[in-house]
Amino acid sequence: MASEEFARSAPIGVFDSGLGGLSVLQHIRQTLPHEALLYVADSSFAPYGDKTSAEILERSIAVTDFLLSKNIKALVVACNTATAAAIKHLRQYYPDLIIVGMEPGLKPASLLSKTKKVGVLATLSTIQSEKYQHLSTKLSADTGVEFIPQACVGLVDQIEKAEASADQTRLLLAKYLNPLLTAQVDTLVLGCTHYPFVARLIQELTSAHIPGGEPITLIDTGKAVASQMQRLLVEHDLVNTSSDIPRINAYTNGSPEKLKLACTQWIDIPEDKLSVSTFSN
């Protein structure tokens, strides 16, 4: 019985190349408020979007090994790029570990689009991945929806700079959004976990392009990831039965000050519920 309780109280590990995965962590906190959470920002190797698949897999294994050393009971790959490049291999390497990755968001977008044109904002690595190419081609054939990918080079870096001016971010987003709006997309997939942090700016820029029209629909799959984790914990009898709200332990090989700022200001984690440390993997 004691070992079962220990397993249930073990933490869920969540990782991303930087701060973007905090958007997923926020959904997990809301869905599973009594679960202990460990977050890793692999910031020294960010962004993953300009790395090769082999490099992304190497980092994903290193971070997963670090989280396993902290006795996690489940893992969330809170990065679209790492999910596309590495999750299949991670499931082979760690067959006994519950692993949940990011959903591409293409299917729900295809069901919502009225113009049958869906824009996909993502990293170049995600767009070029076999997983994205296969899914977008299949869904296009099945639904008649045209998926228009837009690689947002530099946007992750811009979002990571918490002190960067909104003007710089605005200019970069406008550059990537304009061709999609010209193509008359009515739905946008946020294909990177960093992008929900600029969702309000995306809505502002797209509404200015179509004054009086219906707002662009944004697809953020973080909530679906949290729901999938909840389902799997129930299935494996690993839901934490404690009524306590545990502290969140966050780790980075970059700036702990920046990670702390993002946790407290971007997703409103109280300082007394947060511990930020460094790791060297």
Rank of each mutant, 00 (worst) to 15 (best):
T169G: 10
L139K: 09
S227T: 10
V156E: 02
A166E: 14
F197V: 02
G144K: 10
L172H: 06
G222N: 02
G213S: 11
L139R: 10
L188Y: 06
T193F: 03
I202G: 00
K161P: 04
G154P: 04
A141H: 12
P196H: 01
F147A: 05
E163C: 11
L201T: 05
A199I: 03
G213A: 13
A174G: 15
T169L: 15
A174Y: 09
I216H: 01
G144D: 07
V189L: 10
S140N: 14
H194D: 00
D220V: 01
I210S: 12
Q150W: 02
L177W: 07
G144L: 11
K138V: 13
L180S: 03
T169S: 12
Q228S: 15
T221A: 07
I210G: 01
Q203Y: 04
T187L: 09
Q150I: 04
A208I: 06
Q158E: 13
A164V: 11
D157H: 11
P196E: 00
D142Q: 15
P196Y: 00
Q150G: 08
I148P: 06
G212T: 03
Y195K: 04
E163K: 14
T193I: 05
E160N: 10
Y176D: 03
L171N: 12
T193K: 03
N178M: 13
S165A: 13
A183R: 14
L173Y: 06
T217N: 11
R170I: 01
E146S: 14
L177A: 03
N178K: 15
I202N: 01
D220W: 01
V185N: 04
I216F: 06
H209S: 15
F197A: 01
G191H: 05
I219N: 01
I216V: 10
D220T: 01
L205M: 08
L177R: 05
Q168F: 12
S165G: 10
T182E: 13
A199K: 11
A162C: 12
D220H: 05
G154T: 03
M229R: 06
P215L: 08
L181K: 09
A183Q: 14
Q158P: 01
R200K: 15
A226H: 02
A141P: 05
K175I: 06
H209P: 04
E204P: 06
P215I: 02
A166N: 14
D186S: 09
Y176V: 06
I216G: 00
I159Y: 02
D167A: 15
E146P: 03
L205K: 03
V189Y: 06
H194Q: 02
C192Q: 02
L171W: 09
S227Q: 15
L172K: 11
V198Q: 00
K138F: 12
I216E: 00
E204A: 13
P211I: 07
L181F: 09
G213F: 07
T217R: 13
Y176W: 08
A166G: 13
I216K: 02
E204C: 11
T143Y: 07
G144I: 08
S227F: 11
P211Y: 06
H194C: 02
V225M: 12
L177P: 01
T217I: 14
V225N: 02
Q150R: 13
T143R: 09
E146C: 12
